[in-house]
Design a protein around this nucleic acid. Structure first.
Length: 583
RNA sequence: GGAGUCGUGGUGUAGCCUGGUUAACACGCUGCCCUGUCAAGGCAGAGACCGCGAGUUCGAAUCUCGUCGACUCCGCCA
């Protein structure tokens, strides 16, 4: 008999019919006479009843967890009082008439049901068992649906899926490359791509017009909960577009993706210029599920006698204040922790005040006039029982950064105002200066185009030049990064020159792209969305490892395959590689 | 590269601060009993040199140092 349906799909509709189910023993309950087996597959599980009169009773008596069975029988309604309303198939059961053990199983290191409680290293070592867990299957299935939704949507919008090489050349620009030695050319190496950036831009020069790819990207950097050595991007590029065109496409794409997860999205997304994001939220990826904002308190303290603020203001710095809802109840130790937090982010200190019965008080209150205390209270909208936090620094960006870190901490205590808060962060600066190396570097992506009207200032005042770079932020996570690119070789070379790449060096590293640009490349732009992060967010997972079938540990090790590992001397010889003994 | 948390039967934890117990509990596992359970139940049993290595001590799971590994964060990640 062949399988006729999935275990989890058996319902009252099938009562009276004969069905064949295949699956794993999720649990067995042996009553000496009648035997119950919960048979599980990826859809759920169904109770199988084995009656003592059956010829296969003895064989069934011996089944253990995770044995693989094929059972044929009649679907019947459960007897009076035996209906289990907690499970999908709880109304019915399959009374076995034919029974086959397809495979046995050893006793396993953890129960499939409880695999997610096991240590992650153990889970990864036995990933094939861990993935039997319904939540893990749900995660992989969600990832599949997201990928399919992306393909369907982009296909409908005229995008063509093109595969770009995984074996490519090293462009030691951003992250460290993974290298692959060449057998044919000893001493030479391929690099695994950090992104298909140059290829997709080249495809635009090829007249492909609209490209996409679910692209694997490789980075040999230290890992985190949201970083793996290889991750997948929904990567796209299009010709003759503006930023708004790209935004519109991506908003449509995200809407489709969220639909597959049963979520409604509102478009268009909020657009927030980078400078404003820093001013109001102290972050270039603000969590906008909370409306709490940082307030500029320079005016309030314009005439202050408090030395720290006075000095900051005379140096052209910034004072910011933020409301700490119900913060008047915070213990001194909590305030010290928050002070520590801002110091870790570059602050020299933190002023905190409490509002009690209309009065603004606290150890620092004596430094301020009544007008200043009242002014800052009104500025942040503090109520009785709230705290007020004030930070300052001579460097505007430093103040914003540590106040942003403080805001991130404070919102943990606030009720979420929205489930999903998307935002486009726009108008990033094109370049930022690296004092240690006495050069400018791309703030994001070296191929981003400068805003046209800022172009004349490129050499005069590089830091003031805005770019067509933008990020997509969701709930405080950077989901995607995109831009309109340089389509003219000359502009691209000027930018590379500011980054201290000579023409020769630029040609060597980015030659393919530069050559393609000067041969009639159309204006183009694109974006890459982190598939792992999107999936993790929609799956409600904190780590992207939960939505990757076979992820690696923080040391970039795969416990399942035990990779990386040593190779045979023969292989090394073929590659012309000699290993240096570790010191 | 740095910081923090953790490491005890197959799994998850307790014990560690305040050194001396037969190393405890739950789940799982093995056997037996049980004809309506669904986290089945009952009885019996096996299973841990407490990550590894030194040190302190009469005595170390427990204190100290080192080391390895996992996780989180900082650096890093155009």
């Amino acid at each position: 008999m062949k399988r006729t349906m999935y275990c989890g799909d058996v319902t009252a509709k099938q009562i009276g019919t004969t069905q064949t189910l295949c699956g794993w023993v999720n649990a067995y309950r042996n009553h000496g006479g009648v035997l119950f087996i919960d048979l599980r597959d990826r859809t759920g599980f169904c109770q199988v009843v084995i009656e003592p009169s059956r010829p296969f009773f003895n064989e069934a008596y011996g089944v253990r967890n995770e044995y693989v069975l094929q059972v044929t029988g009649k679907v019947q309604h459960r007897i009076e009082g035996a209906v289990n309303k907690n499970i999908k198939t709880g109304e019915v059961e399959l009374v076995a008439e034919d029974f086959k053990v397809l495979n046995t199983s050893i006793a396993l290191p953890f129960d499939v049901d409880k695999s997610r409680e096991a240590q992650e290293e153990t889970r990864l070592k036995y990933r094939y068992l861990d993935l039997r867990n319904p939540k893990m299957f749900a995660n992989l299935h969600l990832r599949h649906r997201i990928a399919q939704a992306a393909r369907r949507y982009l296909d409908a919008k005229g995008f063509i899926e093109v595969e770009t090489p995984v074996l490519t050349r090293s462009t030691p620009e951003g992250a460290r490359d993974y290298l692959v030695p060449s057998r044919v050319h000893h001493g030479e190496f391929y690099a695994l791509p950090q992104s298909p950036q140059m290829f997709k831009q080249t495809l635009m020069a090829s007249g492909i017009d609209r490209y996409f790819q679910l692209a694997r990207c490789f980075r040999d950097e230290d890992l985190r909960a949201d970083r793996q050595p290889e991750h997948t991007q929904i990567d796209m590029e299009m010709s003759f577009v503006t930023i708004d065109d790209i935004h519109e496409i991506v908003e449509g794409l995200m809407t489709e993706i969220f639909k597959t997860a049963g979520k409604e999205l509102q478009t268009p997304f909020v657009k927030l210029p980078f400078v404003q994001a820093m001013e109001r939220f102290g972050s270039d990826k603000p969590d906008l599920r909370y409306s709490l904002e940082l307030k500029n308190a320079n005016t309030v303290f314009a005439k202050t006698e408090f030395k720290v603020f006075k000095d900051v203001l005379s140096a052209g710095g910034l004072i910011q204040a933020v409301r700490g809802e119900k913060g008047a109840a915070y213990a001194r130790s909590r305030m010290d922790k928050l002070t520590e937090l801002v110091k870790k982010n570059g602050a020299k200190g933190l002023v905190w005040l409490k509002v009690n019965e209309g009065k603004v008080e606290g150890p620092s209150a004596k430094f301020f006039s009544a007008e200043e205390l009242e002014g800052v209270k009104n500025l942040v909208g503090a109520q009785n029982g709230d705290a007020i936090f004030i930070g300052s620094d001579t460097a505007t960006r430093t103040c914003q950064t540590f106040m942003g870190a403080l805001r991130k901490e404070l919102i943990k205590e606030l009720p979420q105002e929205k489930e999903w808060a998307f935002a486009w962060i726009t108008n990033f600066p094109l370049l930022e200066f690296i004092p240690e190396e006495n050069r400018w570097d791309a703030a994001h992506n070296p191929f981003t185009a400068p805003v046209e009207e800022d172009l004349p200032n490129l050499e005069k005042d590089p830091g003031s030049v805005r770019s067509y770079q933008f990020d997509l932020v969701l709930n405080g996570n950077e989901l995607a990064s995109g831009s309109v690119r340089n389509c003219r070789r000359e502009v691209q070379e000027r930018i590379l020159a500011l980054m201290k790449h000579s023409k020769e060096e630029a040609a060597r590293r980015f030659g393919m792209l530069l050559n393609a640009l000067e041969a009639g490349a159309p204006p183009h732009g694109g974006i890459g969305l982190g598939l792992d992060r999107i999936t993790a967010l929609l799956a409600g997972e904190d780590s992207i490892r939960e939505v990757i079938a076979f992820p690696k540990t923080a040391q970039a090790v795969c416990p399942l395959t035990d990779s990386p590992n040593v190779v045979d001397q023969v292989q090394l010889d073929e590659l012309g590689i000699a290993l240096v003994k570790e010191q």
